[in-house]
């Protein structure tokens, strides 16, 4: 395992502080901070345009933050000289539009990174990929093309693809927003199971039921700022800021 894992069990898996990001005159993120202890799930809530996606992308270095600090498993990943691909392979990401690779079968999608990044042999990668497909209840669709799957199946395959890299943290950006209501359940179940197994996750979602069930903590964002960071139970019991409560009332209707 990598040298940087000098983290003790008490070290949070993720510690974000003072993150700012500007593009031109627009301030996308303004001094964002939150902490995610190991094995926990944080749900990022906030109105559209609040900067939730941008913050997620900063965490796995897909978008550059202008300032601030991100400690991933105790390691400062914004320090100069950090190998971005090396950081990303330990952080899984799931997208609203699945983004399975259209020219590959489901199995190939999952095998690609283990083979090309981790250097697994084809057989090792295939065994691993099949195991991941079992986890998301899709082994029978291994040889199908993404275009032949339902939306829910595609998102589960995308989760399996991310899991195959054996990440220490999962980022989900509105994983069920593009799905028909009858398919969100199967995806959320997979995510809940993973959370229950102790996979640390940051989830951007508008599914309040899911948030209430799995969120160890809620990070509420508005206009590029983290307005508050509250334990999930408190948040849904109404022990939160006025702005958050107003948002909550709006989305619960």
């Amino acid at each position: 395992m990598p040298v940087e894992t000098l983290a003790s069990p008490q070290t949070p898996i993720l510690e974000v502080s003072g993150i700012c990001r500007r593009v031109g005159d627009a301030v996308l993120l303004d001094d964002c901070a939150f902490t995610l202890p190991r094995g926990q799930t944080a749900v990022l809530l906030g109105p559209s345009g609040a900067g939730k996606s941008t913050l997620l992308r900063c965490i796995n270095l897909l978008a550059p933050a202008d300032s601030g600090r991100i400690l991933f498993d105790g390691r400062d990943i914004m320090a100069p000289g950090v190998d971005a691909p090396g950081v990303r392979r330990d952080i899984g990401m799931v997208f609203q539009n699945f983004e399975l690779f259209d020219h590959m079968t489901v199995l190939e999608n999952i095998m690609l990174a283990p083979m090309r990044v981790r250097g697994l042999s084809r057989n090792q990668a295939r065994d691993l990929a099949m195991a991941m497909l079992e986890k998301v209840h899709l082994p029978h669709r291994a040889d199908a093309l993404p275009s032949g799957l339902s939306g829910g199946q595609q998102q589960r395959a995308a989760i399996a693809r991310a899991l195959a890299m054996q990440p220490r943290l999962m980022l989900y950006d509105e994983p069920t927003s593009a799905l028909d209501p009858e398919m969100t359940g199967e995806v959320l179940t997979v995510m809940s199971d993973l959370a229950a197994e102790g996979m640390a996750s940051v989830v951007v979602t508008h599914e309040m039921g899911f948030a209430r069930r799995v969120a160890d903590q809620i990070v509420f964002m508005q206009a590029g700022q983290v307005v508050e960071e509250t334990p999930g139970a408190d948040f849904f019991a109404g022990r939160c800021s006025v702005r958050a409560r107003r948002f909550l009332e709006r989305v619960m209707d």
Binding site: N60, L62, P85, G86, R88, R89, D90, I91, G92, M93, F95, N97, E99, L100, F101, D102, L112, A113, R116, V117, A158, R161, A162, M165
Partner: peptide, 22 residues
């Protein structure tokens, strides 16, 4: 789609790897 590139990068592939395989 740009998302295909992003997804490749998010898996830990290098930009060259993303170009080559995806």
């Amino acid at each position: 789609r740009p998302g295909q590139r992003t997804a490749g990068l998010a898996l830990g592939l290098t930009p060259v790897g993303v170009m080559r395989h995806i």
